[in-house]
Computed example of a mutant assay.
Amino acid sequence: MGKHKWTYDDDVLACYIAKYGECREVTLKSISNAQGMTVGSLRMRIQNFKALAGKPGLSDWKALSEQVFQDFKNVGQDDHAGRCIALVCLK
């Protein structure tokens, strides 16, 4: 797999996993397959979101990730999950 160019939707998915963990439809593997990235790359991005939330993680996040974090920090789990399920299952 070549270098992945991260999109807003990719970060929405990574943000969800960082906040809530995997669910039946939204897993590291399903995201990786749907979005065309490696699981390792996704894991690193998830660590960026953990750091943005003040938890131990990777602190070298991108501006896009910070924007998604701000956009979704007050979005409830059900609404966030609905968006993620649509992104993963409609690909």
Rank of each mutant, 00 (worst) to 15 (best):
L28E: 02
Y8R: 14
R83D: 00
G57Q: 10
I46N: 00
E66A: 13
K50T: 08
G40A: 12
Y16K: 11
L87Q: 10
S30F: 01
C15S: 15
I31C: 10
Q35A: 11
R43V: 00
R45A: 11
D79Y: 02
C23P: 01
V12I: 15
R83M: 13
G76Y: 05
A86K: 14
D79E: 12
S30R: 02
K29M: 04
A51V: 03
N74P: 03
A53D: 08
L52M: 08
G54L: 03
K62S: 15
Q47W: 04
N48M: 01
L13A: 08
T27W: 02
K19F: 14
V26F: 00
R24H: 13
S65E: 15
M37N: 10
N33P: 00
K3I: 15
F69P: 02
H80Q: 08
G54K: 04
K91W: 05
S32L: 01
Q67H: 08
F49R: 01
S65N: 13
D60L: 07
V12C: 15
C23W: 01
F72I: 06
D71K: 09
I46M: 09
H80Y: 08
Q47P: 00
T27G: 05
K91F: 06
R43M: 01
E22L: 01
K5P: 08
E25G: 06
S65F: 03
A34F: 02
A14D: 06
K73V: 10
T38H: 08
G36T: 07
M44I: 11
N48V: 00
A34P: 07
C23R: 04
R45H: 05
Y20F: 14
G2F: 01
N74L: 10
I17S: 00
I17G: 00
K5V: 14
H80V: 04
W61T: 03
K91G: 12
L28M: 09
F69I: 05
K50H: 07
G82H: 05
K62N: 05
T7C: 03
G21E: 06
Q67W: 03
G2Y: 02
K73L: 12
P56E: 12
K3G: 09
S30T: 13
L28P: 00
C84H: 05
Q70E: 13
R24D: 12
Y20C: 03
S30D: 04
L52R: 11
Q70F: 06
K19L: 10
G21Q: 07
K29Q: 10
Q67L: 07
Q67I: 15
S30E: 03
W6H: 08
H80R: 04
K3M: 11
Y8W: 15
C23N: 15
A86D: 15
A63E: 12
A53K: 07
M37S: 08
Q70M: 15
V75Y: 01
K19G: 02
L87G: 09
A34L: 03
D11T: 03
G2H: 04
G57R: 05
A81Q: 10
L64I: 15
Y8A: 08
C89F: 01
Q70K: 15
D78C: 06
V68I: 14
L52H: 04
